[in-house]
Design a protein around this nucleic acid. Structure first.
Length: 572
RNA sequence: GGGCCUGUAGCUCAACGGUUAGAGCAGAGCGCUCAUAACGCUUUGGUUGGGGGUUCAAAUCCCUCCGGGCCUACCA
């Protein structure tokens, strides 16, 4: 039995995520977790909310709440939505947990011990009115290059020129608008990634099977300009993990916190510790997933994320782990994704453009979204969501091909033989051919799922559904019944068993529908069809079943048009 | 500016130097009547963004031009 550790990029706390966020990390990670559990492997699937940083502080201030309260509330909201989408996390943690605070401080101490931390004195913009240092992009002013009056301190959005905040003419705080700004000297810790560059490069070079998107981004950062740069890992903020060297104070770092991108990946580890605590397990139970000296040497660790997260997962976090000198588990495979666009543009949280997780669930069940998003997941390039596409694909695949198959089989049986699996009839060459075809297709499906080729896996699963309709059409039990009821019974028995097979195979994609089918067919559990022939005799003559309600109702043109209107912009 | 990715049928995508570039959807025709007007079969549709080159052989490798996207290190 293989052991698979799976983490999804952790969603930021400042609001409800849109479908583009979902499809780029949590949803494919869930598919992988469900698949491996179904295959009988031991899985630990972890996710959390990423709670620190300036945007969280500002979102809390806007909501008029203490940042800790705001994060607690938003964590509950996101956890609830994750449940709504059937995301099967073993634990959904929080980067603000005591476990993460301890681990983050511990890692910083280890890195300092190894000589991989240096102190840098730098000049930062301080806003008196806001009472805080401002990150570059929270300073606005007039662009010295093009004159655009809302240029940000890191870059002018109008002429795309890279800027330094001190370049701006008439700089002001983007938060309060105050011009009472001051450049102050402040001291920060830098992780000496440049020292680790050869180790990181050698490690990346061994990952020849990773998606090209992942390795090309990593190599770009390794080789760009003067090579991998040291990175500041502390900030002048109130909300975050206080800077400490292990359990000891860090002289000169009082009042500072670690940068979110330092503590957020460590939360992957802390989340396992939180999981153990929440499950009343000992530390050794989570350490056997994360420490190669404590049982994790046979773990395969797979991460899922959008392309914007790749540098931190291929370089910064591995640098943290390698630099610690401890035997922590390094990632084995990084599956990264492009972006999902919305109807000719980008999903936009700030403009309320596109569909957000709560809205999606309010208009259709999770399986509709799961199926469309996973079967169109942006693996090779950015993908476009359109309502027309969504409607036709979902109606065809789920309602017509799968749902209607279940409907025609169960209703035919009920009308001719009653609501129990019929007896009689013998195996036919056509049935044997069906078994052979499905055996090959299931193997293909598994190969795609093992390789995390999600679109191909979805296409093969759909083809497996189609095979049922083909078989039924050719065997035509409704005709056969008139002359040879026993033969019709044999066909129907096999077709009913196909429903059970489909329920098991489809479960990673559409868990709710699979559960509905399992119950309807009276199956005790959804067992993976390691032997297709055997799986197709799971329901024997006399086994009762019920005709399920319409599995997937179709999306009407009126609905589609309404949603097109509703989600065009300005979330309300 | 630099780097990376991408451009294949009306749409969404396969094909990773080797038969005649393939699927699904959409379109057309036929069949079936068990079913959510569902299903099955057949079929139309491509100068693989343009041009040049390498090769016995190019969607695939090289050059160049055009279009789209992403990243560029203090948002996360």
């Amino acid at each position: 039995m293989a052991r698979i550790l799976i983490t999804s990029a952790i969603p930021y706390i400042n609001g409800i995520k849109h479908l583009g966020n979902l499809v780029g990390s949590q949803l494919p990670a869930d598919l992988h977790a469900r698949y491996h559990r179904a295959r009988g492997n031991e899985v630990l699937f972890l996710c959390s909310t990423d709670e620190h940083g300036t945007p969280a502080e500002l979102a809390a201030a806007k909501a008029g709440k203490p940042v800790a309260d705001y994060c607690a509330e938003m964590h509950a909201v996101q956890a609830d939505l994750a449940k709504g989408f059937c995301l099967s996390f073993d634990h959904f943690g929080r980067s603000s947990s005591p476990q993460n605070r301890r681990l983050t401080q511990y890692f910083a101490g280890r890195l300092a011990d190894q000589g991989l931390i240096r102190e840098v004195s730098e000049r930062q913009v301080y806003s008196h009115a806001d009472g805080r240092f401002l990150p570059d992009r929270y300073i606005e002013g007039t662009c010295p290059n093009c004159g655009y009056d809302r240029a940000r301190g890191d870059q002018c959005e109008n002429c795309t020129k890279q800027l330094d905040p001190t370049d701006l003419i008439d700089p002001r705080s983007a938060i309060s608008g105050s011009t009472n700004l001051e450049v102050r000297e402040t001291k920060h810790l830098y992780l000496r990634q440049s020292v680790l560059r050869p180790d990181l490069e050698a490690w990346i070079d061994t990952k020849t099977d990773w998606p090209i998107l992942t390795t090309s981004i990593a190599k770009k950062w390794l080789n760009d300009g003067d090579g991998l740069q040291d990175r500041g890992i502390t900030r002048d903020l109130d909300w975050g993990v206080p800077v400490k060297k292990g359990t000891e104070d860090w002289p000169g770092m009082e009042g500072k916190v670690f940068y979110v991108w330092f503590d957020a990946p460590i939360e992957y580890i802390a989340s396992a510790a939180e999981w153990a605590e929440a499950s009343n397990l000992t530390d050794s139970e989570w350490e056997r997933w994360w420490r190669t000296d404590k049982g994790a040497e046979d773990v395969r660790y797979v991460q899922f994320m959008g392309k914007d997260n790749v540098p931190f997962h291929t370089l910064s976090f591995p640098a943290t782990i390698m630099g610690s000198g401890d035997p922590w588990k390094l990632v084995d495979y990084i599956k990264s994704f492009n972006y999902l666009n919305y109807d000719g543009g980008q999903f936009s949280t700030s403009q309320g453009r596109g569909v957000f997780m709560d809205q999606a669930l309010s208009i259709l069940p999770a399986d509709y979204w799961r199926w469309w998003l996973l079967s169109h997941v942006p693996e090779s390039s950015d993908t476009e969501f359109t309502w027309e596409n969504f409607q036709t694909n979902v109606n065809k695949d789920l309602a017509d091909v799968l749902g209607n198959f279940v409907s025609r089989v169960t209703k035919f049986c009920r009308s001719k033989f009653g609501e129990a699996v019929p007896a009689g009839g013998a195996d036919t060459p056509e049935a044997a051919a069906l078994v052979a075809d499905l055996t090959a297709r299931v193997q293909q499906y598994q190969a795609h799922m093992d390789a995390i080729d999600i679109r191909k896996a979805a296409a093969e699963l759909r083809a497996i559904w189609v095979v049922g309709n083909e078989y039924l059409q050719n065997a035509a039990p409704w005709t056969l019944y008139k002359t040879d009821p026993d033969a019709a019974a044999a066909v129907t028995r096999l077709a009913l068993n196909l429903i059970g097979l489909y329920a098991a195979l489809s479960q990673p994609f559409i868990p709710n529908a699979s559960e509905t089918l399992r119950q309807a067919m009276g199956l005790a559990s959804l067992d993976w069809p390691e032997d297709v022939a055997a799986a197709l005799t799971a329901l024997s003559a006399g086994a009762p079943f019920t005709v399920p309600d319409v599995l997937f109702r179709k999306i009407t043109d009126e609905e589609r048009e309404g949603w097109q209107e509703q989600f065009a912009g300005q979330r309300g």
